[in-house]
Each structure stands twice: as C-alpha cells, then as structure tokens.
C-alpha cells in the first residue's frame, strides 16, 4: 500500500458544496433513526399532544373547532422542544470540537450545515408533529368529529412551519454565538414574548399560526383544519420568510466561522 491509496477501495469522487454531503447526511439521519431518539420523541409528543386532546374529546364538551385550536397550541410546546433539541447542533459541536474534527475531513461547510438542517428538520417534524398528528387524526375520527384529511394535512403543515421557524432560528443562533444558554434563551424568550407585543403585531408573527391572537378565537392551524376563512395569510408569509432568512444567515456565518 502506498500513501493515499488503500488496496481494494474506490476513492470518493465528490466536489464543490456536495463534498462530504452523503456521509454527513447518512450520519445525521442515523442520529435520529438508528438511535432511541426517534421513538422516545415520537412517544413523548404523541402522549403530550393526544393526551391533552383526549381530555377534551372524551371529556365533557367535545367541540370540533376547539379541538383543532388546542392541537395548534400543543404544537407550540413541540416547537419549543425543537429549540431545546437543536441548541446543541452547532454550539455543542463547536464547543466539543466535533465540528472541527468533521471539517478536517474533505467536506464543505454547506454540506455540514445541510446535515444539521435536513435530518433535524425531518426528524423533529416526523416525531414531534407528524406521528402525533396521525394518531390525533385517528382519535378525532374515532370520536366522530368530521375533518377533511386534506385540510388536516394542510393545518399540520402550517404547524410544521412553526417548528421550522424555531429550528432555523436556533441553528442560526448557534452560528452567531458561542454560548448554549444564549442559543436556547433567545427562542424561548421570543416564543413567549410574542404575545406581549400587542395583538396587531403578534397577529403577523409565528405565534398566530398556532395560538388564537386578539379577538380571533382560532389560530391559523385551527382555521385551516376547520375550513374557516383565514383572517390573514401574513403569519404564514412572515414565518416562511423568516425561516429562509435564518437559514441564509446560518449558512453565510458558518462559512466564515473559525473553529
């Protein structure tokens, strides 16, 4: 064997931003789906979301619209959990040195960032929202509450957008600051602080996606699932735009980070 070659092995031929992407993606997905993480999260959030809804559905006054509004509110807790789960994705790896180790391999920084964004986005959405939502759909069906599968999927997708807001925000903060405390504190402060900004402002923020704001008694998620007209699409547009901005800033900053 000479230096740089290993008998019987084919060298990987990747270049540009895709360099190292396949290996990093495999590892990123494996950290969710080949460990206990996925079923622990899925079990936990299925129990939390469906437990709260079960109390309403099978309790005294099962009301369709209220059930779906409550579903939206419960996904807010999942969104906060996303920020907690994600706090370590960048800051933890910067502090422990695993980021420097991985980036000493022939891989690009965008590939590293994608491997934090995509597997975590899929993992959190699937385990903290999609699986609990499927169970919830079965539960409301059993309770005889009529709901269109399409509308239900649309409402769940908007709840997922709220999750992505906190995921990308946490990811971006991880590239900007070195303190894990700051990375987790900022999303939490924002999550609960939105309601203090006044109903006209919070009505266009991610908060309005999952929690009724002002005089409205239904959130965007609740309205979509119920089939009632939306007061405004502004929170959807603002949240989607914020996700894009956070992601762009995270990639830009990560490219300049010294490890």
């Amino acid at each position: 064997m000479t230096s740089g070659t290993v008998e019987g092995l084919v060298r990987l031929d990747e270049s540009g931003w895709r360099r190292g992407l396949s290996t990093l993606m495999r590892a990123g997905f494996a950290s969710w789906w080949r460990t206990r993480t996925w079923w622990i999260q899925a079990l936990l959030w299925t129990a939390v979301i469906n437990g709260a809804l079960a109390a309403m559905i099978w309790g005294d006054a099962p009301e369709g619209p209220s059930v779906f509004s409550l579903f939206g509110v419960m996904t807010m807790f999942a969104a906060i959990a996303v920020a907690i789960v994600m706090q370590d994705a960048i800051v933890g790896e910067k502090r422990s040195g695993t980021a420097a180790w991985v980036l000493s391999k022939p891989t690009s920084r965008p590939a590293f960032m994608l491997s934090k964004l995509v597997p975590n986005a899929v993992g959190t959405t699937a385990t903290m929202l999609a699986i609990p939502a499927v169970v919830m759909y079965l539960q409301v069906s059993l309770a005889g509450i009529e709901v269109s599968p399409l509308r239900f999927a649309l409402g769940t997708a908007v709840a997922a957008l709220n999750l992505m807001f906190y995921l990308t925000l946490t990811l971006m903060l991880g590239t900007l600051v070195a303190s894990a405390g700051a990375v987790i504190a900022a999303p939490l402060a924002f999550a609960f602080g939105q309601q203090l900004l006044g109903s006209s402002i919070s009505a266009v923020l991610p908060w309005a996606l999952v929690v009724p704001v002002g005089e409205s008694d239904v959130s965007v998620v609740g309205a979509l699932i119920d089939g009632t007209p939306l007061d405004s699409v502004a929170p959807i547009v603002v949240t989607a735009a914020a996700c894009i901005v956070f992601t762009v800033v995270a990639f830009w900053r990560w490219n300049r980070t010294e490890l």
């Binding site: 092995l9 084919v10 990987l12 590892a27 040195g97 695993t98 180790w101 391999k105 022939p106």
Partner: peptide, 25 residues
C-alpha cells in the same frame, strides 16, 4: 483532546471517517 460523536461505537466512527474518502465497496 479528540471528541467524536458519543452515540457511535469506535467501529462506526471509523466507518464514518472512511465515508469521506471511499465510495466502497
């Protein structure tokens, strides 16, 4: 002070590292 992904075994860590260089088999 090398730090690796804690959920991986030594063998998995080396497979992960090899993945940056080799396509297979």
């Amino acid at each position: 002070e090398p730090r690796f992904y804690e959920h991986m075994t030594s063998r998995e860590t080396l497979r992960f590292a090899a993945g940056f260089f080799f396509a297979g088999p």
